[in-house]
Write a protein that binds this DNA or RNA. Sequence first.
DNA 1: TTAATGATGGGCT
DNA 2: GCCCATCATTAAA
Length: 189
Amino acid sequence: MKPIPESFFKKDTIKISKDLLGKYIIHKNLIGKIVETEAYLKDDPASHSFKGLTKRNSAMFGPPGYSYIYFTYGMYHCLNITTNKEGIGEAVLIRSIEPVKGINQMKKNRKLNSIKNLTNGPAKLTIALNLNINHNNINFLNPNSPIKIMQPNKKEKFEIIETERIGISKGRELPHRFYIKDNLFVSKK
DNA sequence: TTAATGATGGGCT
DNA sequence: GCCCATCATTAAA
């Protein structure tokens, strides 16, 4: 495992969404491999940034390589990674991870005994990783950050599937959801 | 197996 | 007051 360079997050958001697949999210002793993402762009009616800067979405308009964690449906949190360029308002939603390390702790956090359904959804994985609104707008690139993203020493080979995004009412037609083909922890085929 | 529904509260008009 | 980048539970088939 090695760090990811800052330049990784300064690219086109679609490309980053695909390149994040196979990378690792680390929070304390908990580690998960990213297996499913969604891109949220500027001028995208489904994006929180669509109507401009607010207090809630301000991380999206900040510099790339930061967390954007928001509270939704009265009880859940979802994790994004900011991308592109400061002031643009783009991010990548992490939709599912494959549990890698600290699986017993993740089960406790989720109050679940099985590995099935442990982290295969955007709110499920934040519960498993014990992330909440206090982790909003944190720099992933800083080695001292409580949450980090790392890449494996050897790049893993896999096929990427592109489909429409899940759980949105606008911008449904855009093929901005990406996942690792045949991975068991993807939220939905 | 899939489909429908209730939970629950911040954000914005 | 309505919407919401969700999920667990229940009901139906």
